[in-house]
Design a protein around this nucleic acid. Structure first.
Length: 419
DNA sequence: TCTGGGGTCCTAGGACCC
DNA sequence: TCTGGGGTCCTAGGACCC
């Protein structure tokens, strides 16, 4: 038995915990630079505001409140939420910032227990959530959709499914009725494209999909969709991922608040992205074998368009902010072109590996230096210490060469707070 | 004027090998 | 003129998720 716990309109709900006056108003939380809506209250959804809806098209709607995102707050609320959810069953997979799967193997009275935890999350954190129960992850997801819909849209599903829905306890006819009432596009793993293709083939509901021949699904679509079909039928094909596996990619990318033309500000931005990515990398105790840097103009503007990326090999694989910032700047210098209004840039670390890597020189020094940097930034806030990289490339290279071999104090002798 | 920022997995096809 | 039959690895692109 699997549970899916999902907080409602998570970012908006977090804001409302600290600003109860927002209750009942259409509220959206906005992306960086207040570009578009990334979370919406029920009232905002009722006004027709979509996910990713540009703020400038929304702001004039009556009574809409737009809030700049506060990701530090959401991250903190998420940790508390996950900690409570972890008590629901023996193992947990944190699937995203606002939802987790919990394996309920061996747990009794699952519906009562889920309702109790739902109440606990509400009274301890102030966050509303829905809990779906099913024999597979896909069914738990679907049950969660039912739990939320039954609460929000009376009549969509039987009212007793509101807030907590257990699909695995239903008689077959009731189970089929729920699947028949669910559009195929609501099924986890079926997006817009697949939904359209399935409709074309006469498959409209989750029940239609569940009844498809698996061999046909595999040959005409993919093994991914075949797994979904099997999971709808109660055959578990997706194991719980308890989070010990490290990420395979680390990305830091942003759209700029204003257009950027000059190399200098791009260098600063790219340095900041590489710095942040390096921190994430060290958090999972990894090293990157490749770094990709990209810059692009706005595809929405009619100005001359340019987008390019460069991949820089890290030999040997590194987790050093100094190496990664240097690589990002080298890549940037190769792709930067004069005369464009850049709207976005980013750094992606790839070819990640873990474990000790023999550095060419100063390995121990680099290790301790990065640990010290992370400790300082944890204590005094992100960006408290970093590398000075508004410099031109030539100067940068010189600085790097000067820096690394010239430490006279053994930094490894300085105690370092480890995460 | 103003349009997010992360991630995952799978497949097809080309390069290369024996 | 006639031109094998595998295998692996890598990459780009497409689909999906939140």
């Amino acid at each position: 038995m699997m549970a899916l716990v999902d907080a409602n309109n998570f970012y908006v709900s977090c804001e409302r915990v600290f600003r109860p006056a927002l209750e009942g108003h259409p509220v959206v939380v906005l992306s960086n630079n207040d570009g578009c809506a990334i979370a919406r209250s029920e009232e905002a959804k009722a006004l027709g505001i979509r996910m990713g809806h540009p703020w400038f098209q929304v702001r004039s709607l009556p009574g809409v409140v737009g809030l700049s995102a506060n990701f530090v707050l959401y991250g903190d609320m998420s940790s508390r939420f996950m900690a409570i959810c972890a008590g629901l069953g023996p193992s947990q997979e944190i699937y995203s910032i606002d939802e987790c799967f919990v394996d309920l193997t061996g747990v009794g009275q699952v519906v009562e227990r889920a309702a109790f935890f739902r109440q606990r999350i509400h009274s301890w954190l102030g966050l509303p959530c829905g809990i779906g129960l099913g024999s597979t992850k896909t069914l738990a997801k679907l049950a969660n959709h039912v739990a939320k819909s039954a609460a929000r849209k009376p009549g969509s599903y039987p009212a007793e499914f509101a807030h907590v829905c257990n699909l695995s306890s239903l008689p077959p006819s009731d189970f089929d009725a729920v699947l028949a009432a669910t559009a195929v596009g609501e099924v986890w793993g079926v997006g817009r494209r697949l939904s359209a293709q399935l409709n074309q083939a006469g498959v409209f509901s989750a029940l239609d999909l569940a009844r498809m021949d698996t061999a046909l699904v595999r040959s005409r679509w993919s093994v991914v969709l075949e797994r979904t079909v099997r999971e709808l039928g109660g055959q578990s094909c997706m194991a719980l991922d308890d989070g010990v596996t490290a990420r395979q990619q680390i990305a830091c990318t942003r759209s700029f608040g204003v257009r950027v033309r000059e190399l200098g500000p791009l260098q600063e931005a790219v340095s900041a992205f590489a710095t942040r990515a390096a921190e994430k990398l060290r958090n999972q105790n990894g090293r990157a074998g490749q770094l990709m840097v990209f810059i692009q103009t706005s595809p929405h503007s009619r100005e001359p368009q340019y987008a390019n990326s460069a991949v820089v090999e890290m030999i040997p694989p590194s987790h050093s902010t100094i190496d990664l910032v240097g690589a990002a700047l080298r890549g940037l210098s190769g792709i930067y072109r004069v005369g464009f209004n850049y709207a976005k840039a980013g750094v992606i670390l790839m070819d990640l590996c873990s474990g000790p890597v023999q550095l060419e020189f100063g390995g121990e020094t680099s290790e301790a230096l990065m640990g010290t940097m992370d400790a300082i930034n944890r204590r005094f806030g992100r960006g408290a210490i970093g590398v000075a990289s508004a410099l031109g490339e030539g100067q940068w290279k010189m600085k790097q060469e000067l820096l690394t071999p010239h430490y006279t104090t053994r930094l490894s002798d300085i105690p370092v707070a480890r995460a």
